[in-house]
Every structure is written in C-alpha cells, then in structure tokens.
Computed example of a mutant assay.
Amino acid sequence: MRKYLPAALLLTLIGTIYHDVCASHVRAGEITARRISGSSLTYEITFTGCYDQVGGSDAARTQNSVRFYVGSVGPIEVARKTPIANIGNGTSRNEYVFTYTFPAPGTFTISTSIINRNIYY
C-alpha cells in the first residue's frame, strides 16, 4: 500500500492545481488605421486576426470581440464583424473595426488585447 502513496499524492496535487488552459491559435494579426476625412482626426481602426482553423477553429469562432487601447484610452471593446472568412491553407480571418477620434494631432500607440494572449503595449 505504501508504494502507491506517492502516486496518489501526485494525482491529488495535480487535481487540486488543475485549471483550464486555452490558446487562441492566432497565426498573425495586423492593426491598420485609415483617416476618414482630411479635415478631422477621426480614423477607422481595424484589427485583422488570422487564426488556425485546423487546431483552433473553436478559438476563431469564440473570439467575438477584442479590446483596443489607443494611447492611454482603453480598453475599448470591439465586436467582430461577421462572417468569419476562410482564406485557405487552414486559416480564417476575423476583423474588428471601430471609429476613433483623436483628441489632438500627435503620435499615439494603438494596441489590442486578445483573450488567452499576453498584453503588450
């Protein structure tokens, strides 16, 4: 009986620290900004995310929104445009688009946060 004790303790320990681990299977992403009018500081900002459809189709399907950060403003929750586009090679494309008016001319950092990914900004 004593020889099974270490295995039982290990299984108990694993059972107590277990939690869900998820990955978003993002293959690539790009943020673009397009000025809507030459006389204003309003831009259409788009995040295009390419997802692995072979091992991550659930992740692509459930990525209903992303969080944007514009300078010190955020998070700005933006819903996905539908439908999800299958672009071939086992890859799908999700797009998230919103309009933002900058408070003044200058240089701003635009970043995004994706569920189950680290935030870098």
Results as ranks from 00 to 15, higher is better:
N118V: 10
G56T: 09
G90D: 11
I115H: 12
V26E: 11
I84Y: 05
G15C: 10
T101N: 02
R35G: 00
P75W: 06
F68E: 00
P83R: 08
S40C: 02
N118R: 13
C50V: 15
A7V: 12
R2S: 10
V66G: 01
K81Q: 14
R2F: 02
L5A: 05
I87H: 12
S40V: 02
Y69N: 02
K81R: 13
F108M: 04
G90V: 04
A85I: 07
I14D: 07
Y96F: 12
G56C: 07
T82P: 00
P103F: 02
E30A: 13
I14W: 13
K3M: 11
M1R: 09
I17W: 06
S39D: 09
V21T: 11
G88H: 01
A79Q: 13
N64C: 00
F102W: 02
V66K: 03
V73K: 13
Y69P: 01
P6C: 01
I110Y: 06
F47S: 12
A33D: 04
S72M: 05
A28E: 08
I45E: 06
N94Y: 00
F98N: 03
H25I: 07
I119H: 14
T107S: 13
G106N: 04
G71V: 12
Y100H: 10
L10D: 01
D20N: 10
E95Y: 06
D58L: 07
Y4V: 00
F68A: 03
S39A: 11
S57D: 08
V73L: 07
R93F: 05
N94F: 01
I84F: 02
T91K: 01
S92H: 07
